[in-house]
Design a protein around this nucleic acid. Structure first.
Lengths: 348, 348
DNA sequence: ACCACTGCTGACAACGTTGTCCAGTTACGA
DNA sequence: TCGTAACTGGACAACGTTGTCAGCAGTGGT
């Protein structure tokens, strides 16, 4: 008995019973292609036939299988976004902005968090390529993106955001972290500070090292020496940052001001400053909610994460629409928002 | 001349030049199926052949087309998440948790923000169904989900989170907003407050009305009257919440304490309280970053958004693995975190 | 020498959709 | 009345992959 194997079926059975166009066609008594025409709103179907087909569609609960459509058409109407951590208050609005632009172009967003791990970044990106996303927006974790070369050659539009790609040519949208950090640090110097601590992220992260460069540049501009112990770089986990911040505040010649390199570092540093009871000035890179309500309110060098995401997504879709110009590198400025903490005078 | 039409091709040409298994097979001098076997790590390929195929794969930069695979296999290894706003500090960790669980199950996450618009929720959900996601996690915006019936019947696993679905049976994971709001309000009453304001979200949102119910229950428990002007419900935009909060603080018998219904409302209310200079007690539903650093630190009824997401995702994958038990309704408890603002005594 | 068996390999169909092309029907002017 | 154009509908192939099955060599036992 083999008659139960591969029976020709007219009733839906796979996908737990998902009807196909064939099923709809059978029910409406029309041809397959006619159903396709109705589903896609193509012309050339009489109103009467159209109505019969529509009825069959609702009766069966038919939904077009986009996988098959993609296979046939070659476009998926979806873009991928890979970033460090979707829940990070800096990246969440960025992601949201990309989603919004994608929606305007009728595309869905698939995203993944790399957790700052280059291997995972690559894994995610390639998984997205396997799904044939039309384009990719990437906040890179690694610094070697040669693995993307075949994909880009195959036509996957790619835009990097917040950090530049490594060993590969591509569109990039960045924030000017160097200028921002320089301005923020200069602000502290202008308020009389000479011993300024820098609490940053891991040095191999581009944005982190750019900001450090800005700090050094501002100090150099003012002719101030930088004592290396004033600088602490590394993972942003609260334990490390707490310990290091305390260290900067201790000793015979403690820092009188802090420049914090990103929002995660900032919240931890703020906690330490509050606990220490010292009036240490603070300028933070990256704005955060309620910064204005702390006492003192926190002076920040604000980035525009949503604008970053929007710009990148728009660039991506411009590429998808066929722009063939050379790859671009856009840089968005930061904005210094004085709120109080950055204007505290030095206290020795 | 029609010989340029539909030429049989051995070299890749579509997708901007993406090689297929056929191309790999040709280059390696083997059959199509053998390439498939190698790509999927199936056994039954001699080491020598396997090596030749691997070389061809890397030489051509081949990447399996998952769309075609999905079409053939019926499973996409992707799940959809629809929520209100990805960038909301409450939903971001929820989303992240779902992503994490999905990753453990080898699935990707596709998400969309409904912006609290039922039509957009439906549009997104159906788009995800058309892509044949294996399952859906939904934070509903609407209150009628009958449109999902055919999808669920067709085998799309569905779990609702944070709010229950309408007119449909499904798994749900909720936070006990009623109990949480009741406890928070009771906390204020225990500290001597009699006139307590409630600043909430739009009343048609389940979580909002549940929390209001909890507030009323606590007042009733204590035998206290509720004056309706103490209650304000509506959109959470800062303008409205600011105006309404000022209103609650005005008049001959102003409230001496506030209960705020969600994190967006809370930050606005905190701003107003700070600006007013009044010592009004505050208990907020939903924890938020830096709540402990404000002065006074904000007492909150904390939810566990990540746990909510994780629980929902785990339930989803249990379904996908074939659990056939009746639909479940899980409720997670809240936790009252006294920090100062909720323990202020009444000041008239 | 033959057979049974095992281990590799490839031909072929099918997944559900869309593009191409052709056939049938109707309407209209010559 | 016929020819022709306009319109409607359907048969068929193709997209790139995987499941089924059959064939082919090599091996070992009789």
């Amino acid at each position: 008995m083999t008659d139960t194997i591969r029976p020709t079926r007219t009733t839906a059975s796979r996908y737990g019973g998902r009807p196909t166009m064939k099923d709809v066609a059978a029910r409406a008594g029309v041809g397959l292609k006619t159903v396709s025409r109705v589903v896609n709103g193509e012309e050339g179907v009489s109103p009467d036939t159209g109505r019969r087909v529509q009825e069959a569609i609702t009766a069966l609960g038919f939904r077009r299988n986009d996988s098959a459509r993609v296979l046939r058409k070659g476009r998926t109407a979806s873009v991928g976004l890979v970033l460090e951590d979707l829940a990070d208050p800096f990246y969440a609005p960025l992601s949201r902005a990309v989603e919004e632009v994608a929606r305007l172009h009728g595309a869905l967003l698939i995203n993944g968090s790399s957790t700052e791990d280059p291997a995972r970044e690559q894994e995610l990106v390639l998984a997205l390529c396997a799904r044939r996303v039309d384009g990719l927006v990437i906040v890179p974790a690694g610094d070697d993106h040669r693995y993307l070369a075949p994909e880009i050659a195959a036509g996957v539009a790619t835009v990097f955001v917040d950090r530049a790609p490594g060993l590969i040519e591509s569109d990039v949208v960045l924030t000017d972290g160097f200028a921002g950090a320089r301005e923020g640090t200069a602000h502290l110097i202008a308020h009389g500070h000479r011993r300024i601590g820098f609490v940053g992220d891991q040095p191999h992260i581009q944005t982190a090292s750019e900001r450090l460069r800005g700090y050094r540049a501002a100090m150099a501009d003012a002719g101030l020496p930088v004592h290396e112990p004033w600088i602490t770089l590394g993972p942003t986990d609260p334990a490390r940052v707490t310990a290091e911040t305390w260290r900067l505040l201790a000793g015979p010649e403690p820092v009188t001001a802090l420049f914090t390199g990103n929002n995660r570092v900032t919240v931890t540093a703020v906690r330490v400053l509050a606990a220490s009871g010292r009036r240490v000035a603070l300028v933070a890179f990256d704005d955060f909610e309620l910064a204005d309500l702390l006492s003192p309110a926190v002076t920040v060098v604000a980035q525009a994460p949503a604008q970053l995401g929007r710009t990148a997504a728009e660039l991506l879709f411009r590429r998808l629409e066929g722009t063939e110009q050379a790859t671009q590198r856009l840089t968005l400025p930061t904005r210094l928002l004085p709120r109080g903490s950055g204007e505290l005078p030095p206290q020795d």
